[in-house]
Amino acid sequence: MAVALRDVTKRFGSVRALDGVTLDVGKGEILGLLGPNGSGKSTLLKVIARLIPPDEGTVLLPANGRAMMRRTGMLFDHTAHWEALTGYENARFFARSYGMEPGAAHDRLESLFSLLDLRDRWDDPVSTYSYGMRRKLGLIEALAHEPSLILLDEPSIGLDYRARVTLAGLLREAARGGAAIVFSTNDVNEAADLAHRVALFDRGRMLVAGEPSVLVGSLGATVTIDLRLKAPIDPRPLGQVPGIEGVGTEEREDGFHVTVIAAPDASGHSSLLARVVHAVANEGGVVVGVDLHAPGLPDVFLAYTKEGAGAP
């Protein structure tokens, strides 16, 4: 286990920023922290980083003190840098401070600056950087020394789409190399795409944690497929398709509609859709439009975090 938290509580005055959090993060795992603003995600990252001590509970890491700091990379939620220094100089300061040799630091930084499209600006002072460029620089500084514990506070904020894709690739590669990655985000879809597991927080409490597909399945919500057909068909055989829980039809102005209600399919919604379309075709139907609504992590987020909910 790379990180183990046991009953961690942190208070700021009368506010419980973290309330009895127990959580494990394995080597090679990417854990996404989700939750409304002020739910304790950033505090949790800082507690894991040992920047703030918990009031109660324990944080277990594979090493202590400076040995652990050397293996940790952290992106903060702010964009603080040495403004008068160039992007390269900023990143080099951190790389060298983490113990990288000058040559290795230079090569690694050049690679990361290029990957994040910042190479042509690395000799410019940070004071001339945009917000997004500062965030990219922060990521480079957090990842350059190839840490085995990566803590990222809202890493994709301010990043363009290409940089987001690159970041996801970098994190997946780091995880394949055995790094434990914990990131907070307000982007539910990002968490669903990137994280192996998601932990949902609200008001300092961890409401639920698990693989995104398992969390979605736990909602018990159904998949709705609306098919628009060229001509009416007999819908009854569709009810025999595995996973289908109900079938309805409706004649509308734009055509004949068949609405299918199904249980979420663990193998993905595309295979369910294929089975339904195949069954429609067997009945001689010609599909001219498809609308699929499937529950996702956003539904999990909304279900757990609605006022006073705590659980769906």
């Binding site: 400076r66 700091m69 603080a80």
Partner: peptide, 14 residues
Amino acid sequence: ESGMLDRMAMLPIS
């Protein structure tokens, strides 16, 4: 105030 001391607190340097 800029937040740099927090960042430096993460460095493996005393």
